[in-house]
Design a protein around this nucleic acid. Sequence first.
RNA 1: GCCCCCGUAGCCCAAUCGGUAGAGGCAGGCUCCUUAAAAGAGUCACAGUACGGGUUCGAAUCCCGUCGGGGGCACCA
Length: 931
Amino acid sequence: MSTDAAEMPAFRYTAELATEIEERWQREWEERGTFHAPNPVGPLKGDVPADKLFVQDMFPYPSGAGLHVGHPLGFIGTDVFARFHRMTGRNVLHTMGFDAFGLPAEQYAVQTGRHPRETTEDNIRTYLRQIRRVGLGHDERRRISTIDPGYYKWTQWIFLQIFNSWFDEAAGKARPIAELEAEFAAGTRATPDGRPWSALGRAEREKVLGGYRLAYLSEAPVNWCPGLGTVLANEEVTPDGRSERGDFPVFRRSLRQWMMRITAYADRLIDDLDRLDWPEKVKAMQRNWIGRSHGARVRFACARPGAAEPATVEVFTTRPDTLFGATYLVLAPEHPLVDEITTPEQADAIAEYRRAVSRKSELDRQENKEKTGVFTGAHAVNPVDGREIPVYVADYVLMGYGTGAIMAVPGQDQRDWDFAKAFDLPVIRTVQPAEGFDGEAYTGTGPAINSGFLDGLDVAEAKKTITAWLEEHGHGEGTVQFKLRDWLFSRQRYWGEPFPVVYDEEGTPVPVPESMLPIELPDVDDYSPRTFDPDDANSEPSPPLSRAADWVEVELDLGDGPKKYRRETNTMPNWAGSCWYQLRYVDPTETERFVNAENERYWLGPRTTEHGPQDPGGVDLYIGGVEHAVLHLLYARFWQKVLFDLGHVSGDEPYRRLFNQGYIEAYAYRDDRGSYVPAEKVEERDGRFFFEGAEVRREYGKMGKSLKNVVTPDEMCARYGADTFRLYEMSMGPMDVSRPWATKDVVGAQRFLQRLWRNLVDEETGALRVTDETPGEDALRLLHKTIAGVRDDFAHLRYNTAGAKLIELNNFVTKHHPGGAPRALAEPLVLLLAPLCPHVAEELWAKLGHAESLAHGPFPAADERYLVEDVVEYPIQVNGKVKARVAVAASASPDEVRAVALADEKVVELLNGGEPRKVIVVPGRLVNVVL
RNA sequence: GCCCCCGUAGCCCAAUCGGUAGAGGCAGGCUCCUUAAAAGAGUCACAGUACGGGUUCGAAUCCCGUCGGGGGCACCA
């Protein structure tokens, strides 16, 4: 390829010219504060239109690896959307900050000896340089970072709000813990052991309150990951019992940790999904994770050796209607009643089984679906008919769900069927299977059989009837069960938010008053987390902060004189900072509060006139990958609801509309040794692939350094310019579809911009080539059709089709106006292009003689006159096949269209004098004649 | 194993309510421009919608089944 300067016209739109234009406009925008979005009040106060739009990208983690072309896909998508709406006159808030706490910085610190803050801040600078180059229109005054004390001060403050509240079941919402304390003090609510509140010491009181607080300390089995040196939330553990990050084994271990009572909000977290404009897929994943099931608890009396009184085994079932078919009970191996009810003859067998199960890893226990178990020797009484049924211990029943015990109904549950077959236990069908059913357990619907007073009732009626019966006779009650567990909120890490909590001499947690926030992260000699042999289940967590003795031991006056306290040495999980960042974007510099209430209401409050009476408020458009479906998105919703209940925010959901962008993927190639070869240097010949002459195998998937197939936005900007790169990414397909990267295709976007540039600018002189010619009727029709189409496409995130329409319009100009574009076409074309390719659009707009940036409009509006056609061409189908075309006035009535169609030569010929059986006229579309 | 999404030209993708299968890009052919090549301009071809049924005047679109790809859940009682 020749790039000889002598041959290249001086003002051709090349990568060099594009880069010059882009750097200049990026500077202009920054100096002019073009993307500053004013707030109603406070430091960022300005004139605010009532019509606003808050667009947000998912909080990026500033990785040291830098960006590849996949990362900016969503960022460009939000930028186009934001720029489009800004041009139509709306006040648009779009910015980007950093979720900067996290394990990678800490691990990197261990390798390099540099402080995580240093490396993280370096990474942020690199990241900002990279995204600036792409031309994202961010309000840079609103950049925040979770590691800034000015930010995490408020993360700690929110923690205190959560700590200082409880969930009032009767009201269905959170209330201040002080109101609960007042109820105990007044005696309107009894203490657990019935003693008056005044008789309880401070530690005792705190223990009672801890049972209610939304953030509480718990001594409970948690997911301990020695390889990472920390505990993990359930959401961070894969189904095969390993850490999502690092893929290390995770062990169950009992530890004293902070928990968030997210389960209190389970119902609201499920129910409010209905009010969100989110992808159904994400809603389904959240519903599934929360896992609400309606059923009943049923109590079975069970004899225990050497005791006069029987034990009570409580089970949870979603199918109380099948109670007559329960032929045995199963307890989880860890169930506390196992020891009490096991007969002496069975004791050894049970003990052996429990030992064997405890040695199995989570993975073994789940992978091996062969049913195993041991008979306890005990029998329980089925409350509905007095029948004695055997009680087993088996590991297919989990201690962690429901009551850790089930009633087994092999006739209607496949797992129970499998166990019953393995242990030769009886099966009683209690639902009449459908006609022709030849399976094993029948889980479908049908009338109840073999079920006494339930016989003949369908499943739903039977459930209702038996639940009422259980409640009336005291054998159980209807209940709702969730899979969701409370959120483990402690991490044994250095690089996270410190808890605003200290412990007194009795070990009782005491919140640090708001006036002492932020609790800053101290510098320590060794800030690496202590990790262990990944398989060492018995290792002890050791938070790095516990080694900062000077920081841990403090003397504070918390209202009753100076006393010695110990600081909490765990830190918060990575998710904390991202639970509320949209609120801080609104008011990044507010010092009195986490966000000013008026600003919060303006940007994030419900807007019922616009979005309907159920509108929960929140960010107007939130774009990110689907990988956060249950982690970040569930936690952020939970925090929002607590803040809402306490009156700190005006809406009860953080993100009104969510959109999941697809991923950019790439081909990778391996040689015959299985090593990856640089994808860039692979040649394709006849559908086969070669690297340095040797054939290589193609794979498809992620872009990554180790796969040697990374393409960076920096490279693309250098080779083509940012506008070309943006346009190509947006043209590749719909925003929500994953697709392969193809560097060779980028040139198509570049050629388009070159043609457009050439239509407006003389490549030799740089002078404007725009004429005052009045465009013809055809041109105006196409122009207004394009305006209407592009507007609609931008509003619905269909950037690929918007781009295609602009190319069409430009092609028309190229073809019909070789002497230069008429101004009446050139100006709207530039404006329509601006959201996608803002730099070149600004440059052309300026060349067209406009002193003001086009960032705030105008955006062209279509003239309806040019959208209605005078004459419509109707295809005439005969029996569904197109046989002819006729032109008919657009105002023609269906009968007139019918008449014209039937008069058509071809149709007359095919009719051959006969009458059509039927004629279908679709106004504006076609005519179908049925013979 | 269960649930969800997707299969349209060699490739990436359009077709918005069931109404003419093709907007745009890459790659390809031809023509013009050029000493030549590249770039550029113009122009052309290519699939009948993964497959098999069904509903309909009419199906890429709706329904059933099969195959292929992607994702979620996976003893949750």
